[in-house]
Every structure is written in C-alpha cells, then in structure tokens.
Design a protein around this nucleic acid. Structure first.
Ligand SMILES: [Mn+2]
Ligand SMILES: [Mn+2]
Ligand SMILES: [Zn+2]
Ligand SMILES: [Zn+2]
Lengths: 159, 159
DNA sequence: TTGTTAGTTAGCAATACTTGCAAACTAGGG
DNA sequence: CCCTAGTTTGCAAGTATTGCTAACTAACAA
C-alpha cells in the first residue's frame, strides 16, 4: 500500500474526498503487518475516533482493495483479512492463534501445475499452515475455533 | 474420501447410524471433483431425495470433515467448498467462473519460507488463480462477483 | 468568508452462509 | 416387535458483509 500522503493525493485525483475517517484508516494500515479484519481495524479506529462506523471501515477497505492498494485474504476462520502489503509474498498461518505472518518463498512464482496445462495462471499463492513460535513454545493444542470462542466477549448488539 | 461402503462400515463402527440421507451424500461425494458447496450438494441431493434438509447436508459434511474424510476449501467467493479428495494435491481456481480444479505440483511439499524459520509447518498449500480453458477461450472478462450475480435466481426465503 | 454540491458517513435493514435447538423420527440391537 | 441412542427437520439465531438513504462535509468557486 502507498503511504497515507500518497493515498491522499491519489484519492483526491480520483475525485474522492480526503476525510478524517479515511486518513485514520490509511494511517492504521500503513506498515501494518497484522492482516487485520474489518472488525479489528474498527476496534483500534474507534479508540482514536469514537463514532466512526464499521460501515465506513468496510467501505474504505473495499475502495482500497479496488484500487489495488490492499489484498484480501480468506482463511477459513473468521472474516476476510486485509493485507496492505501488495508486494509478492506468501503466508504462514498459525492454526492455533490464527496469526498470519508474511513469508517469502524461493521459486514460488515459477511453480506450475503438472496437469492442467490449459489453465492460464495469473497468480500463485503459497500458504503454510502450522504453529507459530509462540504457540509452539506454549505447546498449545487448542483449535482455532476454540481459541476464537475463548477470546470472545459476549456481544449484545453487534449486527 | 473412502468409498460409500467403507464409510458405511466406519460410521457404524463409531456408533453412528447409516441413514438413507447419509448414504445419498456419500454417493454424491464419491469421485466428485467439483468441490461443491453445501448448497450445491443440497441441490442435487434434493432431486434424488425430496425433503432432505440443507441442515442434514451440512451436518453430514461436517461429520465427514471431522473424520478427516473431507477437506474444506475457502476461496473468497461464496460459501465453503468441500473436497472429498484428501490425497495431497493443490488447486487452480478460475477467477471467471469460479471452478476449482485439482492439480499436482512438483516440489510443493518441500517448499519452505525463507524467513520464519521458527514456524512449524504442518501443511503446504499452493493455489493458482487465473482462467480455465473454457473461460479463456470465451475471452471472458467477467468478474466472479458478476458471474455469481448473473447466475443467481431471485430467492424468496432461503434464510 | 460563504455558498454550492458531489461525494461521504452513520446507522439500520437486509442478505448470505452456517450453526443452535428441540420435537419428531428411525436404525439397529435385543 | 420394542427400545432408545442417534438422526433429521424446520426454524431461530449468529456472524460477516452489503444495500439504502438521510444527514453531513470536503473541495472548490465566488
Ligand atoms: Mn501478507
Ligand atoms: Mn481438490
Ligand atoms: Zn500461534
Ligand atoms: Zn472458468
């Protein structure tokens, strides 16, 4: 993703406005390697700008994605994760805590299917699943589903 | 996934019952390479067994997944896809029509992240995105989202 | 500064997918 | 044929995301 300043220029040049909400989201995304969900971003955004709406977070994330400034990652668990790192890279996903780490894989871009020679490849993605250092050390065996449940606070009206 | 007959035995030996619904689902899944969603399976199941419930399809698919007889695949678009092919393989996903094809990738299992040497890998997945032969030939440029919309019949009460 | 307006935001309804629940049903053993 | 543990259904509820629109405001011009 480009810097907040560059995005500002880019937005304005597209006839879009530079609102405080957008500026905040740009800054929260800048150098963010956590692969956040819309909801988690909304959490930190709300802390700095009470009243900002989840709807606006979704809207801005979608705009950035359409502009090619963000990548979407869909692991099975939970919602879509957003990735401001648009350079070629791959991911290691911890099946215990759900954290996603950026990794680089030598030779990944030249991988080809043995079969399906008639398939026109536009993109190759490699995903490693396993345990991150922390979870491995902790010797945890919790499933991601259980993890999610445990870190869940009772929600009243989140619709 | 094991054969319907083997699954029958396996289910009974676990104290589970062999119902007509389960038998039907086993047979629909056997040698099925379409990576169906619960909903699409429900469609074909309903044709052969009117009255079978979507709930039961989900239930059976989840049971098979827990038993390790099915793999779950989550592409961004639409619901979870189920894969009765549990041998090591990878996928080519058409960004136009959404079809998923099984592919084999030489050397995939020995891929390692350059960084993240502290990550304990349990599984490596490779995904190719691009155009399948049909869509490529057709020269289609439709997005999967648009595709989905176009093939959508108005739903009344699908909740 | 002020006015104008196209674009944006907030909030709530609606949708899509999946699971929770409980009453009715039934496979499989005795 | 009976019993009952396990199953199926139908519907409510939950989660993630988008549709809609009235109220708001950034950007620009006067
Ligand atoms: Mn990343
Ligand atoms: Mn497959
Ligand atoms: Zn972890
Ligand atoms: Zn295609």
């Amino acid at each position: 993703m480009h810097s907040p300043a560059e995005l500002a220029t880019q937005f304005r040049s597209m006839g879009r406005k530079l609102t405080p909400q957008r500026q905040l989201i740009f800054s929260l995304l800048h150098n963010n390697q956590s692969h956040p969900t819309a909801e988690s971003l909304y959490g930190v955004a709300s802390a700095q700008m009470p009243g900002i709406s989840l709807r606006t977070v979704y809207q801005t994330l979608n705009e950035l994605a359409e502009m090619g400034e963000l990548l979407l990652i869909d692991i099975g668990e939970g919602g879509t994760r957003f990735d401001p790192n648009i350079d070629e890279h791959h991911h290691a996903i911890c099946s215990d805590c759900g954290k996603i780490r950026d990794v680089h894989v030598k030779g990944a871009s030249s991988l080809k299917p043995n079969d399906a020679r008639d398939f026109l490849i536009s993109e190759v993605g490699v995903v490693f699943k396993g345990l991150c250092a922390e979870c491995e050390a902790r010797g945890s065996k919790r499933s991601p589903a259980l993890q999610a449940k445990m870190s869940q606070k009772p929600k009243s009206s989140s619709k």
